[in-house]
Design a protein around this nucleic acid. Structure first.
Length: 873
RNA sequence: GGGCGCGUAGCUCAGCGGGAGAGCACUCGGCUUACAACCGAGCGGUCGCAGGUUCGAACCCUGCCGCGCCCA
């Protein structure tokens, strides 16, 4: 147990120590049940289901961003009175998990997967999960994720497995799932099929080899980047209208090395412009060739085994790895004088297994598929009709492009860890799909399909399987459709489309009202983080060093919709500094007796009225921005208000007000009210520090369950706002003078402020003196410098006794700089006002604005010139 | 090849039709009774290039150059 939280002002330590407090604070939130949703509460529901992380995974920046944003959304909704549910869970990550355990077996010298058999191996994986899986869950706690742990789910748990079988059975019965021998992306490393989106296409420098098939008159030259596939060729194809080859179509030639006679066929899909216009056809190892093979009823011999080794060709190349065979066959062809041309390097795109990086081998094999056409169409409709809105809108184009060109989804994996396909094959060729409550057929000769389903088949059900589907549960009725799915645009297709396909199919409704797509976290120079670049830092390290709030606020502040963000340690340090600022401001306020329970002053000072008006504006802006998922702007707005307005001006002004009995009590109330509101507004972004401060300030139970501010502060007071702007202008001008005259900041100087009353700032004399460290002019006061500051309602003369000669050159430089700025301003305004077209066509209010600027610039120039003239030589 | 997006201060990014902004970095002055993880002041930009539309363009349109991503 960590130290108890301060609940009274006096207990607030001088420094915020996140490392000592955060973990215990999080535990208390969970114990108090703040994050538990209650569908019987009668509150409007708000639900976000986690995009399930892998059971093998650990927290990286993608998660950190995703979770921070989700947590901001749900914590705010909870405060707004919603029954907010953020449902956590993980997926079983078929390939990744199986690989981890297999590697472990090998390292320990234990029996291999195949040696121990399926049941024992699966048992072993469960054991691994119990011991080492789910590290990310504890890391989520460090980040402060306000998830409902009572509803945590796992794709392989009983309920979700039931959902998977139910879905499979329904789709199977509806003819949306079928088994067929098709060309799939085969990973020789995984020895499994993988889906299209698990393949990365990369430009590689290979070679294009042209070789001659047949001899003499009846020979033809074809080109390929994969020479070894020639062993599986069953035809050569040319375009039907290609006159160069029309005399050959229908004839047969001899396939070198193999000796097989193969036909020359005409097919419209051959591009006569590419290479020689003739292509070799390997139907079992190339998607295009497979289509040609189907159209022409060609044999489809498989010449590579599961691991990419040449097999069954009856040549001496059997047993060679595909890349070894490539070179060996090329040598043989060269020996035979059949190599016509070699283009090297030849840049072309090659599919790689995104997990292992090995080159994908297109391979004909018997697999299960989901027929996506109607499902994808329904997804597109959901977005087109507004049933689901994608934020930011620009991402819609990408979405449509994807769903409209989607291929059938290969869902079978040659693995053991996962949901085994619920199909049994009978002794006489029967195929039976067994639903969740049905008994599989038993008896001699019945066997279950060996394969498991793609992990996405189960994680794609997450928006509703986690809520109890297929049962009609209260959770499902309450929280489905989910409010929003939050994820990175890079995995738009992984989650979003699949969840939508399943959701619309199973329930008739799209699974979420909104989809918010955030960008990727990059390093401080905008480069993608990668292990090979060495620019990846563990988010947990940053949390340890700066606190979770600092990392979260940095992410919020950098997260513009759909845009990547650069994250550097400097930024995180800056966010920590912001937390420190908030900490110190609250400490100050508490030390002065500030409290949000005090009544706001009936007769507020200008400063009070101004900050209360700004508070209301900022709260409204924050709401509008968060409703639009504009996290960066919301965070920036709160940062600026808290630091640059509240701390830099109001808190400073409050010092004078607190010293005056007439205003002290009101000031305590305003300080308390503004801080209370700031802490609530910031809580979703910085949950820990705001909790500590809010409890200290208010004595309340927890800011987690505090009410979200609704029209805090007061309506904007135009007069007070104007006077505060003037005051700030005046103060800044005097500070500037001091700075440029090299008056050390710690030295007080005597000054006379003339014209304050006329400028409406008469009541602020003490405040100004305190802000710029002025003293009352004594009897020996002698003006050594004067300033004139133009304000909205008049001019203020400042006569200063700098106790000595002023730096005339510095003053001249400063005035000249101001003069140049004013002259530029004047020139711009004159140019516009001199244009007939402008006066005739621009809106009246714009013309008026320019006129005012023109007048102001003229006055400024006049003022500066007289000051310059008055300067001693 | 098709599609989307981006080039704004040294760095990272806002702004997307009417006075060029922020954070960090940098310079100068300060431990001023909440805060040196701080305070005050300042320096810094032909808004990628070239045309066009408009009274007016960083912002809209076209082309070009450079960069990134997705799909084929």
């Amino acid at each position: 147990m960590t130290e108890t939280l301060p609940t009274r002002a006096a207990d607030l330590p001088a420094q915020w120590n996140p490392g000592e407090v955060e973990v215990g604070m999080y535990e208390r939130w969970v114990e108090a049940g703040y994050f538990e949703a209650d569908p019987t509460s009668g509150r409007p529901p708000y639900c976000i289901v986690i995009p399930p992380p892998n059971v093998t995974g650990s927290l990286h920046y993608g998660h950190a961003m995703d979770h921070t944003l989700i947590d901001i959304l749900t914590r705010r909704k909870r405060m707004q009175g919603y029954d907010a549910l953020w449902l956590p869970g993980m997926d079983h990550a078929g390939i990744a998990t199986q690989s981890v355990v297999e590697r472990q077996l090998a390292e320990n010298g234990e029996p291999s997967r195949r040696e121990m058999g399926r049941a024992a191996f699966v048992e072993r994986v469960w054991q691994w999960k119990a011991e080492s899986g789910g590290l990310i869950l504890s890391q989520m706690k460090r980040l402060g994720d306000g998830v409902d742990w009572t509803r945590e789910r796992f794709t392989l748990d009983e309920g979700l497995s039931r959902a998977v079988v139910t879905m499979f059975k329904r789709m199977f019965d509806d003819g949306l799932i079928y088994r067929a021998e098709r060309m799939v992306n085969w990973s020789p490393a995984l020895q499994s099929a993988i889906s299209d989106i698990e393949v990365d296409h990369k430009e590689v420098e290979g070679e294009l080899v042209s070789m001659r098939y047949g001899d003499g008159e009846d020979s033809i030259v074809v080109a390929t980047t994969r020479v070894e596939t020639m062993l599986g060729d069953t035809a050569v194809a040319v375009h039907p209208e290609d006159e160069r080859y029309s005399h050959l179509v229908g004839k047969e030639i001899v396939l070198p090395i193999v000796g097989r006679r193969i036909p020359i066929i005409a097919d419209e899909h051959v591009d006569p412009e590419f290479g020689t216009g003739a292509v070799k056809v390997t139907p079992a190892h190339d998607p295009n060739d497979f289509e040609i093979g189907r159209r022409h009823d060609l044999p489809m011999p498989t010449i590579l085994d599961e691991s990419g080794v040449v097999t069954g060709t009856g040549t001496r190349f059997d047993g060679m790895d595909r890349f070894v065979a490539r070179e060996a066959i090329k040598e043989e062809l060269r020996r035979q004088g059949r190599i016509v041309k070699e283009v090297r390097p030849y840049k072309h795109s090659v599919g790689h297994d995104s997990r292992t990086g090995v080159v994908i081998e297109p391979r004909l094999s018997l697999q299960w598929f989901v027929k996506v056409e109607s499902l994808a169409k329904r997804c597109a409709e959901a977005v087109r009709s507004g049933e689901t809105v994608i934020y930011p809108r620009e991402m819609e184009a990408r979405f449509f492009q994807w769903v409209e060109s989607m291929h059938d989804w290969c869902i079978s994996r040659q693995l053991w860890w996962g949901h085994r396909i619920p199909v049994w094959y009978g002794p006489n060729g029967e195929v039976v799909c067994v639903g969740p409550d049905e008994e599989p057929p038993s008896g001699e000769g019945w066997v279950q399909d060996e394969d498991v389903l793609d992990t996405w088949f189960s994680s794609g059900l997450f928006p509703f399987s986690t809520l109890g589907w297929p049962d009609d549960t209260l959770d499902l009725r309450t929280y489905y459709p989910n409010s929003v799915l939050v994820t990175g645009y890079d995995i738009l297709f992984f989650w979003v489309v699949r969840m939508m396909m399943f959701g619309t199919y199973a329930t008739g409704k799209s699974p979420f009202a909104h989809v918010y797509l955030h960008g990727l976290v990059r390093d401080e120079h905008g480069a993608k983080m990668s292990k090979s670049k060495g620019n990846v830092k563990d988010p947990l390290e940053l949390i340890d060093a700066y606190g979770a709030d600092a990392l979260r606020f940095t992410i919020a502040r950098g997260s513009n919709p759909g845009a990547d963000m650069s994250l550097s340690e400097d930024w995180v340090a800056g966010s920590r500094a912001f937390g420190t600022k908030l900490w110190n401001a609250t400490r100050f306020a508490l030390s002065k007796g500030a409290s949000p329970t005090l009544p706001l002053p009936k007769r507020p000072t200008d400063a009070d009225a101004w900050i209360l008006g700004r508070l209301r504006e900022v709260a409204a802006e924050t709401d509008a921005l968060l409703d639009e998922y504009q996290f960066a702007k919301a965070a920036e707005g709160l940062y600026h208000f808290t630091w640059d307005e509240f701390c830099s001006w109001y808190v400073e002004l409050s010092k004078a007000q607190l010293a005056d009995e007439a205003t002290a009590e009101g000031t305590r109330a305003v300080l308390g009210h503004v801080l209370d509101t700031i802490l609530r507004l910031l809580h979703p972004m910085m949950p820990f520090i705001t909790e500590a401060l809010w409890q200290a300030l208010t004595g309340g139970e927890s800011v987690v369950i505090a009410e979200w501010p609704k029209e805090p502060g007061a309506p904007v007071d135009e007069g007070a706002t104007q006077r505060m702007a003037d005051l700030q202008r005046l103060v800044t001008e005097i500070r500037r003078f001091r700075s440029e005259q090299r008056v050390p900041d710690n030295r007080r100087i005597a000054a006379k402020l003339i014209g304050l009353d006329e400028a409406g700032l008469g009541g602020h004399r003490n405040a100004i003196a305190s802000l710029v460290r002025l003293t009352e002019p004594g009897p020996e006061f002698s003006t050594t410098a004067t300033l004139e500051v133009v304000l909205s309602t008049g001019r203020v003369h400042v006569e200063i006794d700098t106790s000595g000669a002023i730096d005339v050159e510095a003053e001249r430089t400063r005035l000249n700089r101001d003069l140049a700025a004013a002259q530029k301003e004047l020139a711009q305004a004159e140019k516009k006002l001199g244009s007939e077209a402008f006066l005739a066509k621009a809106p009246a209010e714009i013309v008026e604005k320019i006129r005012a600027r023109h007048a102001a610039a003229l006055a400024e120039i006049e003022r500066i010139n007289s000051r310059l003239a008055a300067l001693p030589k």
